[in-house]
Design a protein around this nucleic acid. Structure first.
Lengths: 195, 195
DNA sequence: AGTTCAACGACACGACACGTGTCGTGTTTT
DNA sequence: AAAACACGACACGTGTCGTGTCGTTGAACT
């Protein structure tokens, strides 16, 4: 039962340095090779300081990820569900599944299967985004852009599933054209009946 | 450059004990908490013996997984593509994504993002199965059960993507009814044009 | 402006798992 | 019968873990 530290007295400079160092090291040598010692060294910080504020390595990296995720475009509502999904999924693809950062994101998801605490943190991050997608799709359904009986959760699985599947099984990520095709094809199944 | 050991002289009893112990420990405490020391202890075997035959912890567990995977029904061809896909995907779901074993499989996929060797081993396991699915779908297309321009690879992504997505992101796995719905809906997109 | 007090960096510690090496024993091949 | 080799037991050095101690520093209250 270590008493909780006082957030007001937290050194923001160290805070930033730690998160940045963690992310940089992940990109540089891969998540699995990153150690707390290395993060502390690179950030010019004592290990003790890291453990004071985060429970595990995964938690540190997750905070970095959360910032990256924050850059992802929030769900738009231009009235055109296909266009909005394309915008969103393309952004997700660009920010999380392409380039060196993809390894970082994949690494955290991976680590969550070893680290019980990370499961919660990850869910807290992913959950609201799924909810946002659900929301947006429901609205589209109400506006008649999808069939009245369209299964919103199923649509989400069909759209996001392949993205994560390819990321986590080391398959080539989708190109922007391909992601458009997935959206187009998937939504076609749930299109409203032609009159 | 350690010289390769002679497989003919391998102690099959130890071999079995090691793989079994590795799998049991994975189920019991989760992949991340399993150590080579623990496997050796539980199997009643020297660490040296494990390292003689496997390069890493992941490789040991992977052999166990490969056995479990071997139990999965190979792709049938009854002439009905929907029925065959249902059989196959349900088997995959049952064997790999449900019950305590799911954590083992997820753990190995996870670890592959930390362990370069595991990527190859995993690909060697998954690759042929993807190829089999591709093969089967191509045949269905030739037989007119799918549209002539159906994108076989895309179909595979749409079918397997959601399964892995839910497994790896800690979401509830599909029920058999739900997996049937995925198949039905996905194939509907690529149905041959009505005449 | 002065006092207080917790966060900080530096450093040391024991515990544990890693991968390797050595050695004597027992079994299998030749 | 002899040689070759896998085996279990055990020890080693290394690296990382998470924690503990201690003196210093700097922000928050009086």
């Amino acid at each position: 039962m270590t008493t909780a530290p006082d957030p007001r007295r937290r050194n923001e400079k160290s805070h930033r340095a730690i998160v940045t160092a963690a992310l940089d090291l992940c990109v540089e040598r891969g998540y699995g090779q990153v150690t707390m010692e290395a993060i502390a060294a690179q950030a010019g910080v004592s290990k003790k300081t890291i453990y004071r504020w985060w429970p595990s390595k995964g938690a540190v990296v997750l905070e970095g990820i959360a910032e990256l995720v924050g850059e992802v475009t929030p769900f738009l509502d231009t009235g055109d569900i296909v266009a909005d999904l394309t915008t969103q999924l393309t952004a997700v693809l660009d920010h999380m599944m392409t380039g060196p950062r993809s390894a970082v994101y994949a690494g955290v998801i991976a680590e969550s299967h070893h680290d019980r605490e990370l499961v919660g943190a990850l869910s807290a991050m992913v959950g609201p985004r799924i909810e946002a997608a659900r929301e947006r799709l429901r609205r589209a359904r109400e506006q008649g852009q999808l069939a009245a009986d369209a299964d919103v959760d199923l649509i989400i699985d069909l759209l996001y599933g392949p993205l994560y599947y390819r990321l986590l099984l080391h398959l080539e990520p989708y190109s922007p054209e391909r992601i458009r095709m997935v959206i187009e094809r998937t939504l076609a199944v749930f299109a409203p009946p032609a009159e």
